[in-house]
Design a protein around this nucleic acid. Structure first.
Lengths: 233, 233
DNA sequence: CGATCGATTGAGCCCTCTCAAGAGAGGTGG
DNA sequence: CCACCTCTCTTGAGAGGGCTCAATCGATCG
């Protein structure tokens, strides 16, 4: 067998499926390694596969017609991504890039229809996953409508810490390389403003940061900043 | 029979379903009238039903913790809304308000599981609908990240015209009452800025507008405005 | 050890928000 | 049918957050 069931059995995506079902599903999957900074797939490319991330971190980003990038989200282990086929798309709507050495499980898109037909729970679980994404996206719209940049950056960092935080002696480190530019693309700002704000926070002892590295040293005060400050509407 | 099949048979949501299937599905639906400005459901309320809009227009809006409103979208006839149950929510994540006298078809949420189990095409179609919403929301995030207010308002109006435009002798009217405040809540701006911009456009002959009324008189130039102008990243 | 990529910081400006009145439209009740 | 009241829209003045432009510094990698 290509992939051992125990790697994925606990994932919410597969909730309600028996071990036998799972084995069948895994038969059509193929593990693929993606070194740091390589693309798993590119925006506009034919959606030949869909994926689960087993290990590492993947950034999903959209390019605007004008050539600017927007980070849609960071994928953490256990999550699906590239599910274009599930929502009826023939091409990927975003580019997925491994920001760390990553291991993904890939299914051919052609297998999707058969899988959901055979395993209705899979359809229900996928729908919930997409629903969560929709809510996250709405949350982001609300934040961009109502909060100033400082609050948005605070929230973004706290969210990243929650999803991909690693405890270190000085606080919570975000466990993959992330640049000021990345943070700007997540929050609808510019790398300059992000740099200024992070510098300011560093002076107040809220974060420690450096080249593609952020450590939150005072999550509590950062959280206070994220909600108290920066209403604009 | 409560509802005639012909009312909804053509909807993409029901693609791939036979007339018999459709009749069964419609058996558990109930038509409900909602007068102008009445709520179909409220954010936070238990998600007892899901809906299809048959007639009129419904605004879905989210209230922030700080008490500001954000318009999520306008529902046009034929669309599903309030599908909280499909994405695993127990309460509605937004408030739905009829902005016109409206007619909706309501199913009890308890019927959802049985319906999708019996009619897998329904699950697939719903997933596509939610996928479209997700993409729309991402588009909105991108616009808010990269465009200035003027461009965002232009796009919002053009989108509304496409979804709910009615041809009139001077151009394309948005076919339901919409205030400056509503437009502000759609675009992450303020009613003052929206008013100023619309006044400016009126002077240039791009739109005609008044109390809760907008007519686009020069869609082409408005479109030009929406993409040429207002990059900020 | 040079080259490249990411981060920092200053100066200046402009878009958009805030604050503040006031005017017009439409509905309601006497 | 008129007076009043409320809701929506308009417009001015002023401030400021965040962007643009520009230059320099530091770190990482080959």
């Amino acid at each position: 067998m290509a992939v051992d069931r125990s790697l994925v059995a606990h994932l919410p995506l597969f909730a309600g499926l028996g071990p036998a079902d799972l084995d069948v599903i895994l038969e059509s999957a193929r593990p693929v390694r993606h070194p740091k900074n390589s693309a798993v797939f590119e925006q506009g490319e034919e959606a030949h596969s869909f994926f689960i991330l087993l290990n590492g971190h993947v950034r999903a980003a959209k390019m605007t017609p004008a050539g600017q990038q927007i980070v849609v989200r960071y994928v953490t282990p256990g999550e699906m991504f590239g599910v274009a086929v599930a929502i009826g798309l023939k091409t990927y709507p975003a580019t997925a890039t491994a920001v760390d050495d990553s291991l993904v499980l890939a299914w051919p898109s052609s297998a999707w229809a058969g899988l959901v037909a055979k395993h209705p729970a899979l359809a229900a679980n996928t729908m919930m996953t997409i629903g969560e994404r929709l809510q996250d996206s709405h949350t982001r719209v609300i934040e961009m409508s109502t909060q100033q940049v400082e609050g948005r950056i605070a929230r973004a960092l706290l969210r990243l810490a929650q999803q991909a935080g690693r405890k270190v002696d000085t606080g919570i480190a975000i466990d993959f390389p992330i640049s000021r530019q990345d943070i700007a693309e997540m929050t609808g700002s510019t790398l300059h403003t992000v740099s200024r704000i992070l510098s300011g926070w560093e002076g107040q002892g809220l974060v420690e940061s450096g080249r593609q590295r952020v450590v939150i040293t005072d999550p509590h005060r950062l959280f206070a900043l994220s909600e108290e400050g920066g209403d604009k509407g």
